[in-house]
Design a binder for these strands. Structure first.
Lengths: 203, 203
DNA sequence: GTCTATATCCCGATAGAC
DNA sequence: GTCTATCGGGATATAGAC
């Protein structure tokens, strides 16, 4: 195996990385299907044909964006699942996981949420990762209900409510760049976990 | 103005209504841009050219789906805003508004959430309706914090958390058709408003 | 109101010069 | 590694027969 040296551009990325990041930004704005290779080429200041010296296909770009993110979530959940902390702290760790990943890859989160159905070869793999993630999440909530750390409501509704909020963070985080990630994770955790009703009781 | 009589098909819809409803279903599965007029024609068992006897353009279909829904939400919010009930009851009414609209037009909600950016002439109008809706929502939360009905957290985070959950209902409601709408609205309201932490206090 | 045929344009991707 | 030129196909939409 030979060492490879890559010329990096002014932002410290290889051309391939630049193309993928730019594609993610365009996919966020219009969705995978509405972005053409000519759009993407214009955004990185080359001709469409030249893109193919760096990537195999449009589909190849989508795969790179989505699969790496889905695996980041899977790995994060695995760590949280096996950690020795309270259920409430596990939920706070899940909130932080989403906040951190969304901060460092805001554009990619849009594709993960909205364009996964355009995956071809990797569709089944993606769906299995997502299914496992949701199952792990709902198990954490169920065990919290058993230990009475969590109010006894429908576990799927609780999971859905928290997860859809976390999945939508990418839409909203760019407007709130005055909040740093610790502050945001704490605020969001308070709202999602402790609720908003000032009069609510623990009964 | 002359009276018009329309032949209705076996499901009691005009052909135009059937086309729009079928389009909404396809848009939910793949997004507006990835659905072709040939796909839509096949789904309603005619040829693509024949669609144009009922609708002006593909864009015309998207406009019909999104604008009517956005106006339903605007009207619902207007009623809630002016009603003389507690803030918590206003929030519960917003939850019910979303549950009811999502139940009767699940497919359309996907376009409202994901395909609004493909609106052409009506884009600005849609954006103004959405902006007003969110402003009304956050005002309700702020007044609830003032009256101490709502815990003193960041109002935008509270609004975002509740609204993204409600906007994502269309993804999840079809899997939960065992719950009727009153049950669902109550469960969801409990989780969103009272939170999930069994140990949380009102301090 | 549905059909066939077609106009016009744009898509993803490749070939090959430089 | 980027370019020009182009292939083959599929997109929305129209024209006009029935």
């Amino acid at each position: 195996m030979s060492l490879k040296f890559q010329l990096l551009n002014s932002t410290g990325q290889t051309r391939k990385q630049e193309i993928i990041k730019t594609a993610a930004k365009l996919f966020k704005e219009k969705g995978y299907s509405a972005v053409t290779m000519r759009d993407l080429a214009k955004a990185v200041n080359i001709r469409a044909a030249s893109l193919y010296n760096h990537i195999d296909s449009k589909q190849d770009i989508l795969k790179s964006i989505i699969i790496s993110l889905a695996e980041e979530f899977t790995n994060g959940m695995e760590t949280i699942k096996n950690s020795d902390v309270s259920i409430i702290d596990k939920l706070r760790a899940i909130v932080s996981l989403h906040v951190n990943i969304t901060i460092h890859n805001t554009y990619g989160m849009a594709s993960l949420n909205n364009d996964w159905m355009h995956l071809e070869d990797q569709l089944e793999y993606y769906l299995s990762l997502r299914k496992n993630y949701e199952e792990d999440f709902v198990e954490i909530i169920k065990s919290g209900i058993e230990t009475k750390e969590i109010r006894d409501s429908n576990p799927e509704i609780i999971m859905f409510s928290i997860l859809t909020t976390l999945r939508s963070l990418y839409l909203w985080l760019p407007k709130k760049d005055d909040l740093n990630r610790q502050e945001l994770a704490k605020n969001l955790g308070d709202v999602l976990i402790n609720g908003i009703n000032h009069q609510s009781t623990t009964a």
